[in-house]
Design a binder for these strands. Structure first.
Lengths: 154, 154
DNA sequence: TTTCTTATTGAAAATCATTTTCATTAACAG
DNA sequence: CTGTTAATGAAAATGATTTTCAATAAGAAA
């Protein structure tokens, strides 16, 4: 198999080893695909892209690798309400961008937005503190999303 | 079939007709179950409860009815990350309570909370206005949830 | 480099919530 | 009471994801 292109976050090699995982061609290919897009790809989207370059890589491996990447906190997994999960590298091509999603219930298009995230952060921090104390809950994450109809669909 | 107990929101009879739907025994039974719980029931949970009293009612009908109820805005449909959808009557036994969810990723327990919902509402209103203008998006709803580990699981 | 161990893999089968199909039944308008 | 047709249940279909299992390849050790 030909070598990879070396794109993608440079640090995951070490992180992988650190977690006891082997660095394999399919895993590199999947990370490479994720690192080259701004989109919210489904497992099958990723499979198709990887498959073009490495036809040997199967869908099962894509699922397994994505699971690992999510557990390693290298990748976000989202659920936008259609059945398939979507995946996004935490550190995108332009560095980490904290953002949320605007989901069109008409065409399933997803718009990233970064407006209000600062205000949101304040509120979320406050809520997190209050809730974790009141309910004795160890909060590890949150999700905010808006649903509606995009320009074209409304 | 024996009659129903007459619990549940009193107004849905008319609302049903208004939408051109027939009032049937399975539909009444499902609404009755929903109106008697504070829990976040899955379709199968509801099926099992309904089935105890009306063994003739099938799971398919539960799914179909829930779909209708969600579309009529009588019921909320949630996705807590385990695969099954959860359903909640909008107007619960104690009247409508605007609340959000704290989801334990350990045991899948869900805690309703109403703290911070006022502050959240302010933020959400502001965000909704801003986003709908900026992205020309007609916002129809939102979802906020926190994930973490509950008392027992952490 | 070569060998060895075992994590990783792909293909196919299994899962499982949800949806569809279709012949039968029951709401309810007239 | 009767006719129309929406609603129903059982079974089959769907579709994303997971599991199984024998074959393969990563990387430590020799």
């Amino acid at each position: 198999m030909p070598g990879l292109d070396g794109t993608g976050p440079p640090w995951w090699g070490g992180k992988f080893r650190g977690c006891g995982y082997r660095i394999t061609v399919p895993r590199q290919a999947i990370l490479s695909v994720l690192s080259k897009t701004e989109d919210h790809l489904s497992a099958e989207d990723i499979y198709l892209k990887v498959h073009k370059i490495y036809p040997g890589v199967g869908l099962t491996t894509v699922y397994r690798t994505l699971d690992i990447l999510v557990n390693m906190a290298l990748v976000f997994k989202f659920d936008f309400g259609d059945k398939r999960a979507r995946y996004e590298l935490r550190e995108g091509p332009k560095g980490e961008r904290h953002h949320h999603h605007l989901i069109c219930t008409g065409c399933n298009r997803v718009i990233d937005y970064t407006d209000f995230v600062d205000e949101e952060k304040d509120l979320l921090d406050k809520a997190e503190k209050g809730l974790s104390k009141k309910y004795n809950f160890k909060i590890s994450g949150h999700s905010i999303q808006f649903y509606g109809l995009c320009e074209k669909c409304k």
